[in-house]
Design a binder for these strands. Structure first.
Length: 504
RNA sequence: GACCCUGUAGUGCAGCGGUUAGCACGUCGCCCUUUCAAGGCGAAGAUCGAGGGUUCGAAUCCCUCCAGGGUUACCA
């Protein structure tokens, strides 16, 4: 009664880094296994020796690890199975289910050209196909090079399968070409190896990109020829660039690479959330998903069929990737348990060489660190912002946004001296808290007959270098009297250098 | 060219014979008693690719066309 074990695989080819489409495919396989139970196999499809590199393999593994998509078996190298692949091909040949194609590259080109001029598609190497077994054997024995091609059954037959996403798919044999199994040098080709390996690894569900939807018919033919039951297939819509073309690093740059998101301060859970939303919907209005919720809600039936676009801009840095991805990252950072965020911020600060040992677990400033992160996170988009816009919280050196200086300080020539005055007032406070600091600032504003906002915005700019950030009095309490007083004290010259340095 | 897939706001998705065609991101505006790329509220934005049918009634079913994508490799 029990159905065969669920075994899925992610099978990238190391002809490039892990791109977002590959990441999404891996994620869906992973979610499928987490939801229904089963084994996730990782297989590296390195049959194209020309284009495969170890570097690419490493970067794919790195991307998967960062995404948190752990596999149960592998990584297997497809190339490790070539002897097996060759054996299977020879069997097919011996059984008359495949044939030797002696056509040279030039022959093939001529055949295709002729087919083209006759307005029909090239389907098979007819001359080779017509060879008797004896002739074929003889020519092979003579050392004539050949490709082994699958012999697609003739007649009115068709392959039919039920795709988990696209529904019933049918293709007539006459529309399927005699695809190659083995190159003249004996190395196996994709459509053939996948089937060999998926059989060998007892894969039960093949979840992959829609670019393989048409290939599936060939593969099913292979399963039948090999006397095997095909797995369940489910194809995912493709992810394209804003110009509707395929995402490519050469054309679209770093946005397409998964590791870019890591390097730009994304949180894995947020990126998983974003990836899941491309081409899939829970059927409800929910879009913010923790990974547990994602697993719970995931289903192949929620996968859509139309190709999607990652909406990024190559000219606007604020939109270097899809805004929704950025938004989800901000939302996850803001909503996740603070304790889960802390280690990521720590790693980011360490990477930027801003880490202070007193902030570590058990350190005497640990609590301060937690508060600072908590204060900062509502308006932060990526982890990079902790060391970027939020740098003034963690270091005495920070960049100054000249637009902020212009807007919040230079708009009133008296402001600089007033801020220095404020510094002095703060210095005199016996108990420096959010409340006392606010009281002092407002009182000074009253005395000067100016709006408190003037001092508020000016202070923020001098203290953090930027015009936006947490409410000022929270910021003051967080940084503490000493730092606030010192930073405000040099308001007179603030902004003359692009970077503020303070020796404390 | 052939075969196949897809076509709902700028983008991602809902809706699957009867809705003022929903949601999210983005955009714009207002509010938060003067920060903001934060939060709250609201608005604009879609003749449901086009044209024909079927039906009392169609985004939803059928046909044709158009557009985009995939496959058509001794790439994967």
């Amino acid at each position: 009664m029990s159905s065969p074990a669920i075994r899925v695989r992610f099978a990238p080819s190391p002809t490039g880094y892990l791109h977002v489409g590959g990441g999404r495919t891996a994620l869906f396989n992973w979610l499928f296994v987490k939801k229904y139970g089963g084994t996730f196999v990782l297989r590296i499809e390195d049959t194209d020796k020309e284009r495969s590199t170890d570097d690419n393999t490493r970067s794919i593994l790195e991307g998967l690890k960062w995404l948190g998509l752990d596999w149960d078996e592998g990584p297997y190298l497809q190339s490790d199975g070539v002897e097996h692949h060759k054996r299977v091909a020879r069997e097919l040949l011996a059984q008359g289910k495949a044939y030797r194609s002696f056509a040279t590259a030039a022959d093939l080109e001529a055949q295709r050209k002729r087919a083209d001029s006759e307005k029909r598609p090239w389907q098979r190497d007819a001359p080779s196909r017509a060879l008797s077994a004896e002739e074929s054997d003889a020519r092979a024995a003579k050392g004539e090079p050949f490709t082994i091609r699958f012999l697609v059954p003739g007649g009115e037959g068709a392959t039919v399968f039920e795709d988990g996403v696209y529904g019933t798919q049918e293709r007539k044999h006459k529309d399927t070409e005699d695809f190659a199994l083995l190159r003249p040098d004996g190395s196996p080709l994709y459509n053939f190896v996948v089937v060999c390996d998926d059989i060998h690894m007892q894969i039960s569900h093949v979840i992959r990109g829609q670019d393989h939807l048409s290939n599936t018919h060939k593969q099913i033919l292979l399963y039948e020829a090999l006397g095997q039951k095909p797995p369940v297939f489910a194809h995912l819509p493709l992810i394209n660039a804003p110009d509707r073309s395929k995402l490519s690093k050469r054309k679209h740059g770093e946005v397409v690479s998964v590791t870019t998101y890591r390097d730009k301060g994304f949180i894995p859970e947020a990126f998983r959330n974003f990836l899941a939303l491309i081409g899939w919907s829970s059927g409800t209005d929910q879009e913010f998903f923790t990974t547990e919720e994602l697993i719970e809600a995931f289903s192949l039936s929620g996968v859509s069929r139309g190709n999607a676009i990652v909406n990024f801009s190559e000219t606007d840095p604020r939109q270097w990737t899809d805004r929704k991805a950025l938004h989800l990252n901000a939302e996850h950072m803001n909503k996740m348990p603070l304790q889960n965020l802390l280690p990521m911020v720590e790693a980011e600060l360490k990477g930027a060489d801003l880490w202070d040992e007193s902030w570590t677990e058990g350190g005497n400033r640990r609590e301060w660190f937690q508060n600072a992160v908590d204060l900062l996170r509502p308006r932060i988009i990526t982890l990079k912002d902790f060391s970027g816009a939020g740098r003034a919280y963690f270091d005495q050196t920070y960049d100054i946004d000249s637009a902020a200086v212009e807007k919040n300080i230079d708009k009133d020539p008296n402001l600089r001296p007033w801020l220095v005055e404020l510094s002095g007032r703060f210095k005199g406070l016996p108990d420096f808290t959010k409340e006392t600091a606010e009281g002092e600032l407002r009182q000074l504003a009253d005395e000067l007959g100016i709006k408190a906002g003037l001092l508020i915005n000016g202070s923020r700019t001098v203290i953090t270098g930027v015009s936006v950030g947490p409410p000022l009095f929270d910021l003051l309490a967080c940084l503490g009297q000493e730092t606030v007083v010192a930073r405000l004290a040099r308001a007179e010259t603030f902004g003359r250098e692009p970077t503020s340095r303070l020796e404390v």
